[in-house]
């Protein structure tokens, strides 16, 4: 495992752990998702650089575009949650529990 591989893997896993275990605010969940996507961006761009695959240098751009769309959808849902539930705490999302 190269140092680059180790660093982006640990960044992704930290983001995932934050998303899974730090469940207080919706905004922090969205930030964790964005951190995961950025670690993937670094991984893809460094892969293209290291393999000297010119054709793959488009892939990080596509990833960034899609993750921006995803982040905007998440922020729209944040606004919608704040309007309907009055707060962005994940604890208040409890209307549908069994």
């Amino acid at each position: 495992m190269t140092p680059v591989h180790f660093s982006f893997t640990s960044a992704f896993i930290l983001g995932l752990m934050g998303l899974a275990f730090h469940r207080t605010h919706l905004l922090s969940a969205l930030l964790c998702l964005e951190g995961m996507m950025l670690s993937l961006f670094i991984a893809l761009s460094l892969w293209a650089l290291q393999m000297e695959a010119i054709g793959y240098s488009v892939a990080p751009m596509l990833l960034l575009a899609f993750s921006a769309c995803e982040a905007s959808a998440g922020l729209a849902l944040l606004v919608a949650t704040a309007r309907t539930h009055g707060t962005d705490r994940l604890q208040s999302l409890n209307l549908l529990q069994c």
Partner: peptide, 8 residues
């Protein structure tokens, strides 16, 4: 609220 929560 329920639809928004489910969507989130």
């Amino acid at each position: 609220p329920r639809a928004i929560e489910a969507t989130t």
